[in-house]
Design a protein around this nucleic acid. Structure first.
Lengths: 219, 219, 219, 219
DNA sequence: TATGAATGAGAGTTCATTCAT
DNA sequence: TATGAATGAACTCTCATTCAT
């Protein structure tokens, strides 16, 4: 069994190097250097650069999907609560995991063959985390949108944009972003919350406990 | 005298090759082959791969900004009309120029030095096309958002997502997308239009006339 | 059209380097250095090391087969004359083209896929150059062997052994070897020539005119 | 105490891997995998790849020489019997030990330094096993060849060719090959046996008893 | 305008080998 | 005895680029 330590160390470096230079722009030598290892040591853990990307992307998506479902079920039965929880979960994920999010959203299309197919399935499932809640809200008559899938894409793309422009050193605090993005999301599905309601939705507990160390950002 | 023809031919190939493989994944041989030229011919027109990317990105952004301002001013004085026009202009641009949009939104960060700086300025201006309208709407009390810049990012990111998932062969028509995205944008800034009003906003004329052939998609 | 000059120069170096170090032991750097070119220049002419080997082997076998048939037909109708001519042709080929013979006989099995298949066909044809003559001799009742194919292998293997041990600086002259090997070959097929007959058979003209420069040994 | 078991297991794998891929084409990983061992385990038994090859080649040649001398002395005093015995011994060795023969005849020249020198001595001795018999036959006036050494090379090369083309699944039986090759060998040295004589020569007992398991072929 | 020929640097990957355990 | 972890050197091959024509 190859030590999880060595693997994770490399995955962390791969994540940061991919995020900075892009999959094709990042050389394996860059990753090795970032990991404090020799070039060839990487090949002890991963048979190829592609495989390292796949491992990273696969693990990150899987974690997101699994914890997303937990977060939503912990939000209770009300569809508004569940919707707010899933939006806030994604916002926080993007803010706290900018590097991996960049790789997920930009470099995933560099995957080939079976890897690409497997990840496309995961992406569909990840979209469904939010998409199922929106569909439920529409079915329940609480949300008013013509095309729940398109509305899902809209809300997701707002949150995903964080990986492009959010920086911890920027002017906006995570809390401001979380509040405003939650409001935008609600409005998109046709809900205009009064301020107290919005406050309440923002106080529901959202957990990202137990995230793997090679997913979450370095600080 | 360098013929515009040769240049544009190359820019078209560069756009498609960058869009498909990414800037770092695309080799100059790929571009030459797509252009039906020899490797060295490219160097007659562009001193480097970077320069070709810069030319492409610079021209595309400049065109977008210039025509965007025209479109908005042609929409009249009402801030709602101007807002709808600018959203619809961007939606159409993304739908009709998927390839160049992909490059603009993904590969621009591969630019270096002065090129990168110049394009960052253009990106700010491009954001301002929509951003100024939103700010005006907020100032006029017609839009209710706390942070006009953040709202701008939200609306932009919805439209920009088209470059990732929109395909002309997909199920949704450009008209459906334009309608729904316009509605989402209005809702984000706190406006809930009644159906007639939305219809009216969707009938305002939007021109993309005169777009350069190496920007707009092949069909 | 890539210049034949450049190609042949590389093929010559490849031949010598493969002969000395074996296909797997020869690095592309070795070949480039021997050719007085940079590493990458080789890739302008040959897409891979495999392809260079294939080109070399394919051309050498094709030349051997074609000229072998000419030599035999020029030897006249008598099966003994034809047999002696084909043996002497092969002996001379091995002596005058030791390097390429070494590659042909040792490294051909490093070929893969279609290349391997194509060369196996050529090898069968090359064996048939001598094999057809032996079969004709057996059919005509002039040769007494049970299995013409096995006798062919026997005669061929004697001649082929030259690529392993023959050196121009050795004690034996090409003429001595040609005489003795011709005698062995005759004896194998059951013919014991008297000295005058052997002399006559050794005086028939055998041409290797027009051999390609990257096949024949450097001197 | 290094167990002979472990060593032989590795030598067996080395033999097969070298035979299939060639010395330079075979990686130590390939050998380890074939032996069912980890990479580093090989280094417990052999200090380098070269040494493993040397051990294999050295042992195989030594065994061949020693048993060859036994076989010949067991054939009695008659030079024809001794000659037939040595030819048939080699034919059987090549047929029953194709893998090791391939390595012996092809990869021996990859040996370096002292290893190469030592093996060259062994090769000379191995040639002498047959060569001494031929020389004795010539001295005794029973064989009529001008150059006993060249005749030796001729007979050897016929037998050695088996490592290239003989496969147990082929059409020819070992017995057919043994008969025909013995006949060819006799003819080369100028002896035309009548059928009864040939039969008698083929009935002399030849032993390969006690061959080491890492020399003889797997079945 | 355009190409063929060439190059140095660097890509991903594999190699034989080492060493602490 | 045997392994997991690591390394430096070398591998084949591709890259962006140049330059004479």
């Amino acid at each position: 069994m190859r030590s999880t330590n060595g693997r994770n160390n490399i995955l962390r470096s791969a994540r940061d190097t991919f995020a900075t230079k892009g999959f094709d722009g990042a050389s394996i030598r860059d990753i090795a250097q970032a990991a404090g290892l020799s070039l060839s040591a990487l090949y002890y853990y991963f048979p190829s650069k592609q495989d390292a990307l796949y491992e990273l992307v696969h693990t990150a998506y899987s974690w997101y999907i699994e914890h997303g479902q937990t977060v939503i079920s912990e939000a209770g039965d009300d569809v508004l609560d569940r919707f707010a929880a899933s939006v806030r979960y994604l916002v926080r994920y993007r803010i706290e995991n900018v590097s991996v999010s960049t790789v997920l959203l930009r470099d995933t299309e560099r995957l080939e063959g079976e890897n690409a197919a497997a990840v496309k399935t995961l992406q569909r499932q990840a979209r469904a985390v939010l998409g199922d809640v929106i569909a439920a809200g529409v079915d329940a008559g609480r949300f008013t949108v013509d095309d729940p899938q398109l509305a899902t894409r809209a809300v997701l793309s707002i949150c995903n944009s964080l990986s492009i422009w959010y920086r911890p050193t920027g002017e906006l605090t995570p809390e401001q972003i979380e509040r405003d993005f939650t409001l935008y999301a609600l409005r998109i599905v046709g809900v205009e919350p009064d301020p107290e309601e919005l406050d309440r939705l923002l106080e529901l507990p959202i957990s990202q406990a137990g995230i793997l160390d090679f997913i979450s950002d370095p600080q």
